[in-house]
Design a binder for these strands. Structure first.
Lengths: 336, 336
DNA sequence: TTGAAAGCGCTAACAA
DNA sequence: TTGTTAGCGCTTTCAA
């Protein structure tokens, strides 16, 4: 049905090689020839057949995006940012959502990305050394959002600084019994985000002379339900915290609900700080740590496409700034 | 670097055609031959080169997914559902996010999906007749979530029934001054969802003998900020509503915030009902209309792949049920 | 600046 | 059940 390169070549009275060069904008085509070819191609409604081009050139003009979730706020934003850049530069975006361990294993075992993409972006997903090695074996530029890894172009925030600002805010409000809802269970153990944020929580408490008490920590799994469970557990502990720092806004939302369900109020009885500045943090009046999210997607995509097009080594990790957004969910500790 | 079909064929002492057949599981290969070939392919770490396969066969094993947003709850869930089915059946998912009119125009003008996909799924996006025609021109199975259209395999909910149940709930609670925050501006005019929900709002009011008053309607654009603006406008109107039905939970969240900012309370002063059962509706205690979201993605993907693999005509529209979820944001009207 | 020709790695008739 | 033989539609040397 559709016209092919040779149709255009015949009509223009030139070889397919010239048409190919003209349409790709290569320099070695006379301007008149190019104009004529472009006009004829348009007349014939010519469209390149990607698979033929890919087979002949070896370039796929496609970037694989691997995410542990596509249906959470943070990931939707990052994917948005990545897609924006890819589309504007004429690249396809191949999406892989690896929610559970099974699909993750299957993915890294079969590695469906082989010979299929020019670059891969991994979004805030814990990567075992073996998995990182499998990706390296693809022999294409690799990008990573939300962590550092050897051989990857990394875009991230300073989790230690961000989490530190949240905990210091609570300390400055006079809180001493500050609980922590962390993200990662054992599955995410190798990932830096939960570790860094947890470390900042502990270090800031130690530095303030408050000391870190393990019984004030609970795991929330980065979900609303997980945050709710974690907060319930904390509330039934021996020490009732006067404030809680959650490693994500979703967990903070869950924590707020648990607090209310137990008959307490936010912030009168317990202050809550989250992390992300989720689009609904404002609605829920949640104090949180803001991070640029879509921008991280933009950046990693840009870096990857530059590497694809110009080669070279991955640049040093880009660390973007965070900021504390104070809203109504935190207030000075009240005397008991 | 990687082994090719002919490497496997040489090693196995058969032709490339036999290797191709064996690896694809075609019936006409002796079991012993197949086993040997599969073993050798594994030994050689053979991976198919998709572009070669696509060029030779004409099948891309790829589905294009076109969405107006990837970073909103509803769309994230649908994409999740689509991806799940595609990955399980070995298809690639090519994602296109067309947030603004410019990118939409460019997309339909250049139609980058040509010769690139075996099917296309359009997610809750208004389609002009011209745009629908461009897609039809791709000559591949077409799917649509959230609306009906000739020539598309459609998966949707009954928006009229869903919205009707929300408004009837308010009427049953004794409300008479029921406002409506609608989704669509002029840009989405051709799309059925906002129209159907708006129609249900009006019809139910009429049927209840309450009558429909245009001054109780405002446009909220399906966003939190839009819902907030719409609610503010409604609150500064002549009649203060005692209840409001928002066409999406996000707009309902915005409305709740506007209500609180104006010094009123939900539900004491104003009841609020949303639509979607967003993951945070529960956290915000929002009464809403629940719809199966990821399931719609699952279904449209399944239907499309069946059409790709077996041909045939798109099946009739699948209409999934909705349900009213009553939470704390609605209560009987209080005497003024 | 252009053309001829040889693939890229696979699939699909057709034959055997 | 297997092999032979053409391509699929482009890109890319190499030569002119």
């Amino acid at each position: 049905m559709g016209a092919s390169l040779s149709d255009v070549a015949n009509r223009a009275g030139v070889s397919t090689a010239t048409v190919s060069r003209a349409l790709r904008g290569l320099p070695s085509v006379a301007e008149g020839t190019r104009l004529r070819i472009v006009r004829i191609a348009r007349e014939l409604d010519y469209t390149i057949t990607p698979s033929a081009s890919r087979l002949a050139s070896g370039r796929t003009h496609t970037v694989g995006v691997v995410a542990p979730y596509v249906n959470r706020w943070f990931f939707g934003e990052v994917i948005f940012g990545v897609e924006e850049v890819l589309r504007s530069r004429g690249f396809d975006l191949l999406l892989y959502n690896l929610a559970d361990a099974t699909s993750r294993d299957r993915f890294f075992d079969a590695m469906p990305l082989r010979r299929r993409v020019d670059a891969v972006a991994v979004l805030s997903m814990p990567l075992s050394p073996e998995q990182a090695a499998v990706l390296s074996g693809l022999d294409v530029p690799l990008g990573l959002v939300g962590a550092d890894a050897e051989g990857f172009a990394c875009v991230r925030i300073d989790d230690v600084a961000g989490a530190g600002s949240a905990v210091r805010h609570l300390i400055m409000l006079g809180h001493r019994d500050i609980a922590h809802i962390s993200g990662g269970g054992p599955a995410t153990h190798s990932f830096t985000t939960p570790r860094d944020r947890a470390r900042a929580y502990r270090d800031v408490l130690e530095d303030a002379g408050i000391g870190y008490r393990p019984e004030l920590e609970a795991v929330g799994d980065y979900t609303v339900a997980g945050g709710e469970r974690a907060m319930s557990a904390l509330l039934s502990g021996a020490t009732r915290p006067s404030a809680v720092f959650a490693q994500s806004d979703e967990m903070a939302f869950g924590a707020m609900r648990a607090i209310r369900h137990s008959g307490l109020r936010v912030p009168e009885d317990i202050s809550v700080v989250g992390f992300d500045n989720h689009e609904l943090a404002d609605v829920l009046d949640l104090t949180t740590v803001e991070q640029p999210v879509a921008e991280q997607g933009n950046l990693v995509a840009q870096i990857l496409l530059d590497l694809v097009e110009s080669g070279g080594e991955p640049p040093p990790t880009m660390t973007l700034p965070t900021g504390l957004v104070v809203r109504g969910s935190t207030r000075p500790v009240s005397p008991r």
